[in-house]
Amino acid sequence: MISAGERAYITQCVEGGLRGDGRGCLDHRVTRLDVGTIPQANGSARVQLGGTDVMVGVKVEIGAPLAFRPDSGRVEFNVDFSPCGSPDFEGKEGEVLGADLANALARSVVVGPDGKAGGLDLATLSILPGNSCWVIFVDALILNNDGSLLDAVTMAMRGALAEIRIPHVEITKGDSAEVPEFEIDNEKSSKLDAGAVPIIVTVAKIGRRYLVDLTSEEELCSDFSLHIAVNAEGRVCGVTKKGSTPVHASVMQEMLELAQRIGPKVIESLDAYIVDVLGE
């Protein structure tokens, strides 16, 4: 909740190019990233973006491919809100919010209708077409919300995916010819190529100015925001709009271009840090 006075103050500040914590309109907060926080997961990361605190764990398991895409792997998203974070996250409310975010992620980040758009080449995750494939489960836990959740989740996801190694699989014919058997060789694993996975840059408009990395108060001030998934080359991979206010096409165009400029820089800084931490 926000009062009319706070809204007026934020709007005036932003018009003057200043934000409540002294940032400029296009500045990010300091990002804290830890990779490998959950030992049980195949890949994990925690991101703190100001007050926003997000944890992502990635599991890789063998499962069945989708019927209409038998020669590809799958990626499943799940977002949970910790009820400790805010009373708003308790019970059904948190589940609904989580499903919203998971949908936005699934739409924007990985899978296009043909299974090739987005960042991951799902064909490489296939083991035996029509029978089995690798399934990547991306589970995000929101520990605290201070705005720009999707941005933080995708940053953490990038860290977690960088850690993932896909084990080598040897297919042997089992006793019966119908059911194949797998030998999983964890020694001979290959790195998952997640370099092309986009991150989401949330761009909002307050007054006449565009803002990135909003705090929760600023989110309440803006009529609408766009979650724009951008990859390292600055290509737009998906857009989700939040808020019911209609957007003029030219405004949307400007927001997209802004995200295209900022996204690659964010990915560059993140990757430099991740490579530094993982020592590769």
Binding site: H28, T31, K265
Partner: peptide, 10 residues
């Protein structure tokens, strides 16, 4: 401005 990334321990 590029993003400043650091560890949570910093």
């Amino acid at each position: 401005m590029a993003l400043l990334v650091e560890s949570t321990e910093t």
